[in-house]
């Protein structure tokens, strides 16, 4: 059971590698059975082995991380963030075995993205464009269970919009976080966050100089 300090929630990344792996295994099995019907077991195994090799090659980092590390969590505010604010979040990741982390850094990319959907004839197309990016690198600390890093975000008051979702138009904010250092996995994870249509106190009229 995950627990977090009052006023915060523990957020899990979107897109689980386990589900991705399970989907790949199921699709590969279906392809193999289909090919067996035409080419026999031995010949059908060749394209399947090629598929598996390509999969391992592409998702090597995620597979290695999945074997040695648990999914990371992000301790974020239980309420939405104000535009123009600079909140602090806590990134943590537990290891499945004892790892001595001497030094590491955690890179965090904060993104505001516009996403629109349009229809031309019978085709529906989605287009996304990043309108704001802010990258921060924070030092991480090794703990008995894994690693922890405190990250300060910079939610722009000047670019992007507060989060909203309409039928065909959407603005969303998310964080892409990855850790780097010896013995650390090289995968990255995406965490959605909500930005409220509230201007941070520091940016309000008459308070800019304080």
């Amino acid at each position: 059971m995950l627990s977090s300090p009052p006023g915060t929630v523990l957020c899990k990344p979107v897109g689980s590698p386990r589900k991705f792996l399970a989907a790949f295994v199921i699709i590969t099995l279906f392809v193999w059975l289909f090919l067996i019907a035409f080419f026999g077991i031995v010949l059908a195994a060749i394209p399947v082995l090629v598929m598996v090799a390509l999969f391992v090659l592409v998702s090597k980092n995620s597979l290695l991380a999945m074997m040695r590390w648990n999914q990371p969590t992000l301790e974020i505010s239980s309420t939405s963030y104000a535009i123009g604010s600079t909140p602090t979040i806590v990134y943590s990741r537990k290891s499945k075995r004892v790892v001595d982390i001497v030094s590491c850094s955690v890179e965090c990319l904060l993104v505001c993205e516009e996403r629109v959907t349009y229809t031309q004839g019978t085709d529906t197309t989605s287009v996304a464009r990043r309108v704001y990016e802010s990258e921060t690198v924070s030092p991480g600390q090794g703990t008995a269970e894994g690693l922890v890093a405190v990250i300060e975000l910079d939610i722009s008051a000047n670019r992007g919009s507060p989060s909203f979702k309409l039928r065909n138009n959407e603005v969303r904010w998310f964080l892409t976080v990855s850790a780097s250092g010896p013995l650390l996995p090289r995968d990255s994870h995406t965490f959605p966050i909500e930005v409220a249509p509230v201007l941070d106190v520091r940016h309000r009229a008459g308070l800019q100089d304080t």
Binding site: N158, G160, S161, P197, V198, L199, D200, R204, G206
Partner: peptide, 18 residues
Amino acid sequence: IPVGGLGVYDRPHPLPLY
């Protein structure tokens, strides 16, 4: 405009840079 934006926002978001 967003809550607290009166006197700061004079056109649609994004806010002009200071």
